[in-house]
């Protein structure tokens, strides 16, 4: 199935990814056509465009403008967005 064309008011949203998710997508950020929506909308879009990360994404948090966001929180078109998978520092 071909992806639907982006709506005319869509802009490019860059989403930072790290560690195993960066390895899965072959880069450190995703570029998505985005015309606004919630964190949950963004999760669904990422899972459609990058099905290879869907399982890890389901276990990940989303940070918007430097703070962890709930699934219902809005993501503006100019937001600073990062996907934070389960951590393993120390």
């Amino acid at each position: 199935m071909q992806p639907a064309p982006p709506p005319p008011d869509a802009t490019t949203l860059h989403v930072a990814v790290f560690a195993g998710m960066a390895e899965l997508v072959g880069g450190r950020r995703l570029a998505l056509d985005w015309s606004g929506g919630s964190v949950d909308d963004l999760r669904q879009l990422v899972a459609r465009r990058h099905p290879e990360v869907a399982a890890l994404l389901a276990r990940s948090a989303v940070a918007v403008d430097g703070r962890y966001a709930a699934d219902g929180d809005p993501v503006g078109s100019g937001a600073d967005v990062a996907i934070i998978p389960p951590v393993s520092g120390g």
Binding site: F18, A19, G20, E23, L56, R59, A63, I84, P85, P86, V87, S88, G89, G90
Partner: peptide, 22 residues
């Protein structure tokens, strides 16, 4: 730190691939 800081460890076991830990 291990529970909540957004840092990830990858293990280099040879073979040119990093095993990221999630």
């Amino acid at each position: 730190i291990k529970r909540q800081v957004p840092i990830w460890k990858g293990e280099d076991r040879g073979g040119g691939r990093i095993e990221w830990q999630h």
